[in-house]
Amino acid sequence: MVSILLIAVTIIISLAAWQKPDWMGKMLMNPYRIQHRNEYWRFISSGFIHADFTHLFFNLFSFFFFGVQLERIFNQLFPSVASELYLVFYLLAILVADLPTYFKQKNNPNYNSLGASGAVSAVIFAGILFFPTEKIYLFGFFGIPGFIYAGLFTWYSVEMDKRSRDFVNHSAHLYGALFGLVAMTILYPQVWISFVEQITAMLR
């Protein structure tokens, strides 16, 4: 499965980068170097490295549960090109999620970010479109319906991006999520009918 392959590649690259700081530096999302030195690979390479084990674990833990499920949906909807389409979806999510940050920070040589959060957010929100009422468990025990989680997640990302008090690129979470919604709307617009029907049934 493509999801398992992406997880394996991300783990291998992240572990290797931790041992080679110079390599890590060349893979970071650095808008200034992209703009002024044409290091365009950073758009994608930054999505396969992580700051530490906790960062890596939580991204891949979320991706495992939502990614495998979403890949099965791709296999059902687009059987002849499912693997290729799913891989393109994931890689584009890494790129698109970082574009707003790139335009905002392209003249700031000190800005760096890394991680697969944008792509993982895209996968999560695309999955929520198909299963909006399935519960997402925060911290392993507190379950809330997917569509409510989506609203809370969006609010949190917007607020944290305004404050910018940590080193997490919260705007990548937000734009990755938006990409997931838009991409699935383009690929399979009928999903919104099912989405509304499931929520309506739950609220009755």
Score class of each variant (00 low, 15 high):
M1N: 05
V2C: 03
I4R: 04
I7Y: 03
A8L: 13
V9P: 00
T10M: 02
I13P: 06
L15R: 07
A16E: 05
A17E: 02
W18D: 04
P21R: 10
P21G: 11
D22C: 04
W23T: 09
M24Q: 12
G25M: 12
L28P: 01
N30W: 07
P31Q: 03
P31N: 04
P31E: 01
Y32W: 14
Y32D: 02
R33H: 00
Q35I: 02
Q35H: 12
Q35G: 02
H36R: 11
R37E: 10
R37N: 10
Y40A: 05
W41P: 08
R42L: 08
S45W: 03
S45R: 04
S46P: 09
F48C: 03
D52M: 00
T54C: 03
F57E: 01
F57S: 02
L60R: 06
L60K: 06
F61R: 05
F61L: 07
F65I: 07
F66K: 07
Q69H: 08
E71A: 04
N75W: 08
P79M: 11
S80Q: 15
A82S: 14
A82W: 05
E84S: 13
L85M: 14
L87S: 06
V88S: 05
Y90L: 12
Y90W: 00
L91K: 06
I94H: 04
I94L: 14
L95R: 02
L95M: 12
L95W: 08
V96C: 04
A97S: 15
D98P: 01
D98W: 03
D98A: 04
L99S: 03
T101R: 05
N107F: 09
N107C: 07
P109K: 10
N110C: 00
G115H: 13
G118A: 09
V120M: 07
A122N: 11
V123E: 10
G127F: 04
G127K: 05
F130A: 08
F131C: 02
P132H: 07
P132T: 02
E134T: 10
I136V: 15
Y137F: 14
L138Y: 02
G140M: 11
G143W: 01
I144C: 07
I148W: 09
Y149V: 05
Y149C: 09
G151F: 12
L152F: 15
T154K: 01
T154R: 03
Y156F: 14
E159W: 08
D161S: 10
K162R: 13
K162H: 00
R163A: 14
R163I: 14
S164E: 12
S164H: 09
S164Q: 13
R165E: 14
N169L: 06
H170D: 00
H173L: 07
Y175L: 03
G176L: 04
F179S: 06
L181Q: 11
L181K: 11
V182Y: 07
M184E: 09
M184Q: 12
Y188G: 05
Q190V: 03
V191Q: 09
A201D: 04
M202L: 15
L203W: 14
R204N: 10
R204K: 15
